Amino acid sequence: MGTRGKAVAAAAVAGTMALAAAGCGGSGGSDDSDAKGATSAPSGKASSGGTGGAAPAKEPIILAFGGDTHFEGQLRSRLGNAKSALGPVAKQLRAADLAMVNLETAITTGGTAAPKSFTFRAPPSAFKALQGSGVDVVSMANNHGMDYMEGGLRDSLAAIKRSGFPVVGIGKNANDAFRPYRVTVKGNKLAIVGATQVLDDNLIQAWTATDTKGGLASAKDVPRMVQAVKEARKGSDVVIVHLHWGAELQPCPLPRQKELAQQLVAAGADIVVGGHAHIPLGGGYMDGSYVHYGMGNFVFYSASGKTAESGVLLLKVENGKVVKDKWAPARISGGIPIPLKGAGAASALKRWNGLRGCTGLQARPS
Score class of each variant (00 low, 15 high):
Leu98Lys: 00
Ala158Pro: 06
Gly87Glu: 07
Asp176Gly: 00
Val185Met: 01
Phe118Cys: 09
Asn188Trp: 03
Phe127Met: 12
Ala159Pro: 01
Ala122Thr: 14
Gly132Val: 09
Ser156Gln: 04
Leu153Ile: 03
Arg162Val: 14
Glu104Asp: 10
Gly134Val: 06
Ser139Gly: 15
Asp176Phe: 01
Ala106Ser: 13
Val167Ser: 09
Val168Leu: 06
Gly151Lys: 12
Asp176Cys: 01
Phe120Arg: 02
Leu130Phe: 10
Thr112Met: 10
Ala99Ser: 15
Pro124Arg: 08
Ala122Leu: 03
Asn142Pro: 09
Gly169Glu: 10
Val135Arg: 00
Ala174Thr: 05
Val198Phe: 13
Asn173Gly: 06
Leu130Lys: 03
Ile170Gly: 05
Gly152Gln: 06
Ser139Phe: 10
Thr109Ile: 05
Glu150Ser: 15
Leu98Pro: 00
Gly152Trp: 06
Thr109Glu: 15
His144Lys: 01
Gln92Tyr: 14
Thr112Lys: 14
Lys172Gly: 06
Val185Asp: 03
Met146Asp: 05
Leu157Ile: 08
Ala90Tyr: 12
Ala85Phe: 13
Val198Asn: 09
Val193Ala: 11
Thr105Pro: 05
Gly132His: 10
Pro166Leu: 09
Gly187Asp: 10
Gly145Met: 03
Pro180Leu: 07
Lys189Thr: 13
Arg94Trp: 13
Lys186Leu: 10
Lys116Ser: 03
Ala95Gln: 09
Lys128Glu: 14
Asn188Leu: 02
Phe165Asn: 05
Ile160Ser: 04
Ala158Asn: 14
Gly110Phe: 07
